[in-house]
Measured scan of single mutants.
Amino acid sequence: GPGLTDLFKTEKAAVKKMAKAIMADPSKADDVYQKWADKGYTLTQLSDFLKSKTRGKYDRVYNGYMTYR
């Protein structure tokens, strides 16, 4: 089956995709945050998933999740 690194890459891609969806349409934020909360994502995990070469690119999404939880 898929190894943990593959799983991480898949999760990371999914999280980034959802983060971009929030940035494009902030009204989606609560739905996405709820999904992440259901998956039990911690802020540390989210921070790892949303690492970007562009500093602060996903800060709004991260901060939103922090206040959501």
Rank of each mutant, 00 (worst) to 15 (best):
G1N: 13
G1M: 10
G1W: 08
G1P: 12
P2L: 11
P2S: 13
P2F: 04
G3L: 12
G3Y: 06
L4E: 12
L4I: 14
T5H: 11
D6M: 05
L7N: 15
L7C: 15
L7Q: 15
K9A: 10
K9W: 10
K9N: 11
T10L: 11
T10N: 10
T10P: 06
T10E: 13
T10R: 14
T10I: 14
T10F: 09
T10W: 10
T10M: 10
E11R: 06
E11F: 04
E11H: 05
E11G: 03
E11A: 06
E11S: 04
E11Q: 08
E11L: 05
K12A: 14
K12R: 13
K12Y: 04
K12E: 06
A13Y: 08
A13C: 13
A13H: 12
A13L: 08
A13W: 09
A13S: 08
A13V: 07
A14H: 10
A14K: 13
A14L: 14
A14I: 12
A14S: 08
A14T: 09
A14D: 07
V15E: 01
V15S: 01
V15D: 00
V15C: 05
K16Y: 04
K16E: 07
K16T: 07
M18K: 03
M18S: 06
A19Q: 01
A19T: 02
A19R: 01
A19H: 00
K20C: 07
K20P: 00
A21V: 09
I22E: 00
I22W: 01
I22H: 00
M23P: 00
A24M: 12
A24H: 08
A24I: 12
A24C: 13
A24F: 08
A24D: 11
A24Q: 11
D25A: 03
D25F: 05
D25P: 01
D25C: 11
P26W: 14
P26T: 05
P26R: 05
P26I: 06
S27C: 13
S27K: 10
K28L: 14
K28H: 08
A29L: 02
D30C: 15
D31K: 10
D31P: 05
D31E: 14
D31N: 08
V32G: 03
V32I: 14
V32C: 06
V32K: 02
V32T: 08
V32D: 01
Y33R: 01
Y33Q: 01
Y33C: 01
Y33G: 00
Q34F: 06
Q34E: 09
Q34A: 12
Q34W: 05
K35G: 08
K35D: 11
K35P: 00
K35H: 10
W36G: 00
W36D: 00
W36R: 00
W36T: 00
W36S: 00
A37C: 13
A37D: 06
A37R: 08
D38V: 09
D38I: 10
D38W: 07
D38Y: 08
K39T: 07
K39G: 03
G40K: 05
G40R: 05
Y41V: 06
Y41W: 04
Y41E: 00
T42H: 03
T42L: 03
L43H: 04
L43W: 04
T44Y: 10
T44D: 13
Q45H: 08
Q45G: 03
L46S: 01
L46W: 01
S47D: 06
S47M: 12
S47I: 08
S47K: 15
D48Q: 15
D48C: 15
D48A: 15
D48E: 15
F49E: 01
L50E: 01
L50A: 01
K51V: 09
K51N: 09
K51Y: 08
S52H: 07
K53N: 11
K53D: 12
K53I: 04
T54H: 13
T54C: 11
T54A: 07
T54S: 10
T54V: 11
R55G: 10
G56R: 06
G56Q: 05
K57A: 06
K57R: 07
Y58F: 07
Y58S: 01
Y58E: 00
Y58M: 03
Y58Q: 01
Y58C: 02
D59S: 10
D59Y: 09
D59K: 08
D59E: 11
R60W: 13
R60C: 13
R60F: 14
R60I: 13
R60Y: 12
V61W: 01
V61L: 03
Y62F: 15
Y62M: 15
Y62T: 09
Y62L: 15
Y62G: 02
Y62W: 08
Y62E: 04
N63I: 14
N63Q: 11
G64S: 03
G64P: 00
G64W: 03
Y65P: 00
M66V: 14
M66G: 05
M66C: 11
T67H: 14
T67D: 12
Y68K: 02
Y68H: 06
Y68T: 03
Y68L: 02
Y68N: 02
R69D: 03
R69E: 04
R69I: 14
R69W: 10
